[in-house]
Amino acid sequence: MGRGKIEIKRIENNTNRQVTFCKRRNGLLKKAYELSVLCDAEVALICFSTRGRVYEYANTNIRSTIERYKRATSSSSSYTTQEINTQFYQQESKKLHQQIQMIQNFNSHLTGDGLASLSVKEMKQLETRLERGIARIRAKKHELILNETENLQKREIQLEQENACLRAKIAEYEKLQQLSMMPGGQDYAMQAYLSGNVLQLNMMQAAVYPIMDRKVLPLGTMAV
């Protein structure tokens, strides 16, 4: 069942009228707040109850808003559109200066300056923000250190492999130099180098194709 339409007229029952006033007043104040935030509008709301109590809301100084309203609606006012825009931009500039001042004060508080104007509660809030910021900074620093350490370890392994390869090549070169100085000259050294490669090839073939029926011959005899 949907809500039925309510006839807009004065509520005769005092209790019901007071309850309706409280509910609709809160809704009106909420709508005024939402309008000022969503649309960045300058809003001022004044409401008097039947008992003479006043309820008001303004996102800026309510008196300045009323004065602005008087200037805008005054019959003797001769403000041009340019002057109204100038006033608007002056107010916007004032707001921006206030925001800049707040940011500058906050930055000085972060460095430990200008703390005399803060209360104990505000100092606790500032301390909590600093601790959270330091925790995030330390976590990011730890992550960067781990990544850098991992990269250095990989580089170390790569350099060790390259170093081992170079040592093997140097040892092979020195061995060939020694063989070339022996009787037989360079031909002997080349034969030794080739025989070493052939020996390695035979060892690989023996590992892949093992000889199952090799005959054992006495020392000094040859197989036919």
Rank of each mutant, 00 (worst) to 15 (best):
S108G: 01
L126C: 00
L110F: 15
Y79L: 15
Y209M: 05
L130G: 01
I84C: 02
L130V: 10
R129T: 11
M204C: 07
K141M: 08
N151I: 04
Q177N: 13
I84N: 03
E174H: 13
K140A: 14
K121H: 09
M212A: 13
F88G: 01
H97E: 08
E67S: 12
I137Q: 09
D187W: 07
N197A: 10
K124N: 14
A192Y: 06
K175S: 12
K141T: 06
S75D: 03
Y69L: 15
Q200D: 10
K94L: 01
K169M: 09
A207S: 12
Q177S: 13
L118V: 00
L166S: 00
M204S: 11
F88C: 11
E131W: 07
K140C: 10
G133L: 04
Q153N: 13
L115I: 00
E156C: 11
Y69P: 06
Y173V: 01
A164S: 12
Q177L: 09
G184I: 06
Q98R: 10
Q186P: 02
S117M: 08
M204P: 05
F106D: 13
I137N: 07
N105S: 11
L201T: 08
I84V: 10
N85E: 14
N197P: 01
I137R: 06
Y188P: 06
I100E: 10
E160I: 00
A206Q: 14
R214E: 07
K140Y: 06
M181P: 07
N107M: 14
E131M: 14
A192E: 03
Q178I: 04
L166M: 10
M102E: 13
Q200S: 14
K70M: 04
K141W: 05
L176C: 00
S75Y: 06
A72L: 10
A189H: 04
L152Y: 03
E122H: 04
L126W: 06
A192P: 05
Y69S: 11
N151Q: 09
Y79P: 06
K169I: 02
A72Y: 08
R71E: 05
Q191C: 11
E156A: 14
I137F: 02
R129P: 03
L130D: 07
L96T: 04
L110M: 15
S119Y: 03
Q153F: 05
A168W: 02
I145T: 12
I100D: 01
T73P: 07
Y193H: 15
A164G: 00
P210N: 02
Q82N: 10
A168P: 03
T111N: 02
T111V: 07
K124Q: 10
E143K: 15
S93C: 09
P210E: 02
Q178W: 01
M182T: 09
E122I: 03
T86N: 07
N85A: 04
R167A: 05
T80D: 12
Q161F: 05
K154C: 04
A189Q: 08
R155H: 07
Q104W: 01
S195I: 05
L110Q: 11
A206P: 05
K141L: 15
S108M: 03
